[in-house]
Design a protein around this nucleic acid. Structure first.
Lengths: 350, 350
DNA sequence: CTCCAGTTTTGAAACGTTACAATGATGTGA
DNA sequence: TCACATCATTGTAACGTTTCAAAACTGGAG
């Protein structure tokens, strides 16, 4: 770590130039400068030119706090993400950004990193800043915090989670169906003993997907007990590797022939561990992931996965949020998208 | 897409409660409420209790715009990322967040998505909001915009890019060295014809890494012409696949036996395409990636890659930014980290 | 009972902008 | 030349906080 150094400009001694300075330099009144900023058509071309000249000369930058205080209404929207390092959520964010851009709003991304206290800090800051609204994939969708926020006047749209209440919109994908598709696919391919890999159960997603897996088993006339439960402490690659280790270590009689993972990170970790151990996929273990992130197809063995319309999810959520923030006749909506199974080599028929 | 509906609460009719309302309810003056907020020790325990009670009763949320306008100084810092869907940058962001949290600042993430106009929009909004400072991986590090921002008083730290000027701090990794390590590794493994896959050349990273690759060739007494140039339009998985197609299509005599990619996304795409085409890695083509993202190790063939200290990068950048924003004696620094080659199966000796 | 030092509380000014009513210019038709 | 409409500009009052000097208490010492 080499370093060359330079003298700094120190802390903010410079009071930034205000509309008053601009007015003085351009020889007009405050009001005119404000007009140039907000209703340029109302001011004579010549004056406007002079004001704009003065602005760029002074490097004027409008103080958003003052603007907002007086005029009300911020120009931003935020998405509080559960895990910014999970490609699933960044894709959702990209969709949200598209919709925000359409509406001339800026989207700020906040990463709660699965930590409730950090989520709360962000939510507070965002409310204090009076953002137009908040998109959030909450750590705990059932926490009353969300209702509080709505009650205090900030629109909220819950993304990729659902909840009973009706205080806000939500946009999600049918997790129960997704997992059912996955298990049905495996059953069709002749698998009997199937593992469901995922956890912790505090994550609604995990519960729903497990339930979907059970649905498929019982619908096919199998015992729910044939669904082997492999619990993980988080939905990460590392946890996936650990799960692989454990599954490989089971006695042959207990060992499942296929695994449905609660997400792709887990599936990729599991796959990687299996390959490392010299086992074959799908011969020794068929694997289905969930999310179909871009890396699923590029995996050691291309991964069968349940695809969710990620961008669409984000876009729809942001549109609903913007509608709620701007349309007095807004009606809350619970949108549920349908997932799709993408079969690849990791579940090739044996 | 099913939907159940509920009547909405409409646009913000409710004027949010102000410190004035709180004061009225608690039977104290404005000043006292403000004191409770900012110097709780200065107010008698009994009164403080009454005020706090009133606050929670009314659901009071301090208006940050007003606070900032009067008191100055925001509590946020932002990172304008080049591509939020690239795991490299989200890891950097995570590091930055750690440092921001230490300093009790909130970090907002903005995704420029490689588009200069969007980057500019974000930078403007951030300046208008008077954020404490901006971390940025710029689309074009040589654009004068950055200097303008600094001149106008917002501290800027450039992340993962470098530039001649001395108006701001920067934190980067030695790209030339990283690529040299990659090529040296391939030369040691007996490769003669090596491709450098990357582009466009507008990205400094690509230029530096290519230069490093050339360095290694000439240092080993090879002709720089032995480094086959495979240009891509972006650093994405899709472009990697296209590059794979092209390389595989070359006449055997021209075809390189190894490829160094400008990043892991490219490498993963290339690898995937090769596998799809039925070619073998590393036998037909050895591949080295760059960044060592978490998915590199989980790839079809575990990917040799150049690892960069991503979190460290973000953490250091944020620390420098915070120092610049708060320490009058701040001195600009150009930090350069050292990369490391992580050899895996994709370059196993043949 | 008075005075004083200390502690609490208050009131008004200020932050930089926007909105709006009022004023001033400019031009037009009779 | 005048009345009038139109267009451009101005001045001032907010917006919701914080700050800070000053006022109002308190209780103990003399």
């Amino acid at each position: 770590m080499a370093g060359s150094t330079e003298p700094g400009n120190g802390a903010g001694i410079r009071r930034s130039t205000s509309v008053k300075d601009v007015a003085a330099l351009a020889g007009v009144s405050l009001g005119t400068v404000s007009n140039v900023l907000n209703r340029p058509d109302r001011v004579a071309a010549a004056t406007r030119g002079r004001v704009e000249q003065a602005m760029s000369e002074l490097g004027f930058i409008r103080n958003e706090s003052a603007r907002q205080l007086r005029a009300g209404g911020s120009l931003t929207v935020a998405y509080v993400m559960l895990d910014a390092t999970n490609p699933f959520f960044t894709d959702v964010a990209q969709g949200a950004e598209e919709a925000a851009e359409e509406a001339d709003l800026s989207l700020f991304l906040c990463n709660s990193d699965n930590r409730p206290e950090r989520e709360l800090t962000y939510l507070n800051r965002l409310q204090e800043q009076r953002v137009q609204g908040v998109l959030i994939t909450p750590v705990d969708p059932d926490s009353p915090t969300l209702d509080d926020i709505v009650r205090r006047g900030t629109p909220v749209v819950v993304v990729d989670r659902t909840r009973e209440g009706d205080t806000h919109c939500s946009v999600a994908v049918d997790d129960r169906l997704g997992a059912r598709l996955a298990v049905e696919h495996l059953l069709e391919n002749g698998h009997d003993r199937i593992a469901f890999v995922g956890g912790p159960d505090t994550i609604g997603q995990v519960r729903d997907r497990r339930r979907g897996a059970v649905d498929a088993m019982t619908a096919a006339g199998r015992s729910a007990a044939d669904l082997v439960r492999v619990d993980t402490a988080a939905l990460t690659v590392t946890e996936g590797r650990a799960a692989g280790e454990r599954i490989a270590g089971l006695a042959a009689a207990d060992r499942p022939t296929a695994a449905v993972c609660a997400n792709d990170l887990l599936a990729l970790g599991l796959l990687q561990q299996y390959v490392t151990l010299g086992r074959r996929v799908p011969e020794d273990l068929a694997i289905v992931g969930y999310d179909d992130i871009v890396f699923a197809a590029a995996a050691a063995v291309p991964l069968t996965s349940v695809r969710q319309p990620r961008r669409e999810l984000g876009r729809t959520a942001a549109r609903l949020l913007i509608d709620e923030a701007t349309n007095p006749d807004h009606v809350h909506e619970q949108v549920l998208f349908t997932p799709e199974l993408i079969p690849r080599a990791s579940t090739r028929r044996r």
